[in-house]
Design a protein around this nucleic acid. Structure first.
Lengths: 288, 288
DNA sequence: GTTCCGCATGAATCGATAG
DNA sequence: ACTATCGATTCATGCGGAA
């Protein structure tokens, strides 16, 4: 038994590939499916009127693979169609509840930097939904893992201190000084709210992510613990998996597009699908 | 003819009192109806399951009284029922669209200071919906009225512009200087987004408002001009009407509760319902 | 090494134009 | 009439090169 963390990437359509995963095996699903008719060049693009119909079979599979104590976070935003916000997200929530999901909460991602533009009838859209669904009303939530510094005054000081602390932590492990710092930090921490104020990461990489790594990171901390299993059925460039690795969680990503798959293989250093099937080992939950 | 601004307050249930208003006469409806089961002591308290059914006749009347160029802003947030967010807001949006409303946009009120509290399965709720509905796709919007000072990005640019301006000033004294300045001022402002980051007003008063005055103020600036008509069918302590007065808009408030009605009468110095009926003058759109 | 500046770029949306 | 494509608009961010 080692403490090795697994990151498994599957190339293919999650509509089919989810069938390979076992029942009640995933602790957190965090994903951002392609929005309706968006990203046409990389994904097919689903018409807004058919979006719910397309997504429901997938969400049914997600319900199957999720542990009863697990959580599903769905990052989504309805687009504007003919001057109106389309209602497919509303309809999806209603239909997923019929499917057996509990719609526990709606978090908001308030984007620091949103897309530019000016229109006579509309301002720039600077927020997205992070819908929390659960399989049961008893789910795991580790609130202490995402506590925040209190107030603006503390924020600036904490930033500097935490950076200093990091460096010290690397050079001198267990010097006793870090403990003082952490005590000081604890006293100045508060629980966050259901609004996340984060910037998008844009213009840095070949395949830029649709959300910053801090987003999955926050939810992974909140809803899982070390060694738990995280799933992203629309893995894209792998932000969710990267965050999971960083936090020592096992993870599975499914991605239909070869380019993104390659990016993940190169970036994450993973157990590939081939390995899985050659060994006839599914994503076993025990460690090697 | 004077430029006097009218503020009219009607005591009664808006389900009935809206019938007294003329068709196509209101430029902006801004309201925050009693949330489901939330204010049992002051209002009847509508059960979440019957909320849509209760609200639809009211929204039908609102559709009638609104000008085709007008806007309806609905401040609402679904409550948690048995560990889940209830879906009555989703259902309401879908049903109001069937009624003929366009669901143009969803603004978010991101609360700077939200209610304290701690629960094992949920963080504090720090946002509310501000649903924008329209009667037609051609509605009035005065975006310049709500422009904001630009952030850090502009500061650098501003520096450069002022330098350019200086050079121009040196080479051509007097000519075109004013024009440059006005460009400079214009560029100092940016359009806002669809997220409003405002603090709640702490309940220092007897009848605390459910939203800060800055909230209706922002939408009144954005969707009306001087002398337009603003309606709040759930006027409460009168924040909407106060903002309308301040901005020189005519307004009508309907309030079912005597206490709140009295507060408004004392605060706003208004034309009362009695006056209206004695004179047989409805809320005429011409000024006195 | 810093700081500063320029520049590209993003889950966008509208209106006009073309087929 | 209905869909498809294109240009214009616009701002926070991060990167790279320069001072």
């Amino acid at each position: 038994m080692s403490l090795a963390i697994k990151t498994k990437i599957i190339l293919g359509d999650c509509s089919y590939k989810l069938g390979e995963l076992e029942d009640n095996s995933i602790d957190l699903i965090f994903t951002s499916p392609p929005y309706a008719d968006q990203r046409k060049n990389t994904y097919g693009g689903t018409h807004p009127d058919k979006y719910v119909q397309w997504f429901l079979p997938i969400s049914k599979e997600l319900l199957r693979v999720l542990k009863p104590s697990g959580t599903f976070i769905l990052n989504i935003k309805e687009r504007v169609v003919k001057g109106e916000r389309h209602i497919y997200v509303m309809e999806l929530i209603i239909e997923m509840r019929r499917q057996g999901w509990f719609w526990t909460e709606e978090f908001i991602w308030h984007k620091k930097n949103c897309y530019p533009g000016k229109w006579p009838n509309r301002f720039r859209d600077s927020w997205e939904r992070l819908l929390q669904f659960n399989k049961s009303k008893k789910f795991h939530m580790y609130q202490d893992a995402v506590m925040l510094p209190v107030g603006d005054w503390a924020k600036t000081r904490l930033k500097k201190l935490s950076e200093t602390d990091k460096r010290r932590d690397e050079s001198r492990v267990g010097s006793g000084f870090g403990k003082n710092i952490s005590n000081w930090l604890d006293r100045n921490k508060a629980y966050p709210t259901n609004v996340l104020y984060l910037a998008t990461e844009c213009g840095n990489k070949n395949h830029s992510a649709v959300f910053p790594e801090a987003l999955p990171e926050w939810f992974i901390k909140l809803f899982t613990k070390d060694g738990d299993w995280v799933l992203d059925p629309f893995a894209g460039s792998g932000s969710t998996l990267k965050a999971a690795q960083k936090l020592k969680r096992n993870s599975i990503g499914i991605e239909i597009h070869q380019d993104y798959y390659d990016v993940m293989i190169n970036t994450l250093g993973t157990i590939k699908q081939q390995y899985l099937f050659e060994k006839k080992a599914k994503y076993e939950t025990h460690s090697d």
